[in-house]
């Protein structure tokens, strides 16, 4: 899985320095690990309360850390990556569910297939999947407007990180985290409401 002389800390620091491929490799590793551990945990916990995604990220961290020396900064960055991976798992699932339900994906279909689509506004239910999917779409729009705010949402919401932990993970001040989090929530909520079931 790893290239011969790569370490997690190495990848983290390369990524922090702007090496995008390192970031991708890091993400893939964390993503795979997250899924593997979660599945294992789930089998163990059948019948218990649902999974705590933060606890999950911690376990991934412990496993991947091995004997490497993580600085607090590395740790914080790591959890930001885990938060993103969590979001990714959710959005992939939501997208697939959404696609099978509506019969359409993100990519446009042929003209004939379009003819068979029912208009979305006539759908009766706004299930969890739909909500999650709409959140994902809204998040991507937010990402385009201000990537940092999107990362704050990821860390706080999907990663369950505290305000100080988020600040450490993203190398910004706690005040900035608070501001971004507050505004992002309002912004996202507005987008969601405009396109929700009671909208036009």
């Amino acid at each position: 899985m790893y290239q011969t002389d790569e370490t997690i800390t190495g990848l983290l620091r390369d990524w922090a320095r702007g090496d995008a491929p390192a970031g991708d490799r890091l993400f893939t590793i964390v993503y795979d690990e997250l899924r593997a551990i979660a599945r294992r945990q789930r089998r163990r916990w059948r019948g218990d309360d649902t999974l705590d995604t933060t606890a999950l990220a911690h376990e991934v961290y412990l496993r991947l850390r091995g004997s490497e020396a993580f600085t607090p900064r590395d740790r914080a960055h790591f959890f930001a990556v885990a938060a993103r991976a969590t979001r990714q798992i959710l959005s992939n699932y939501a997208r697939r569910q959404h696609a099978t339900k509506r019969g359409a994906g993100e990519t446009p279909l042929s003209l004939q297939e379009f003819d068979m689509l029912a208009p979305a506004w006539s759908s009766m239910e706004w299930s969890s999947i739909d909500r999650l999917w709409d959140l994902e779409v809204a998040l991507r729009q937010l990402e385009a407007i201000n990537p940092r705010a999107c990362q704050v949402v990821e860390c706080r919401y999907f990663g369950g990180l505290s305000i100080p932990a988020t600040a450490a993970a993203l190398d910004i001040s706690e005040a900035t985290v608070k501001r971004d989090w507050a505004l992002a929530q309002a912004w996202l909520f507005r987008v969601l409401r405009e396109h929700g079931p009671d909208a036009l």
Partner: peptide, 23 residues
Amino acid sequence: MSHEIITPVFDAALASVSGDPDG
């Protein structure tokens, strides 16, 4: 949303995924 949706869906997501992640 976090309480009602994120955690339960995460559960379901992991239960269903078996192959390569999309994308």
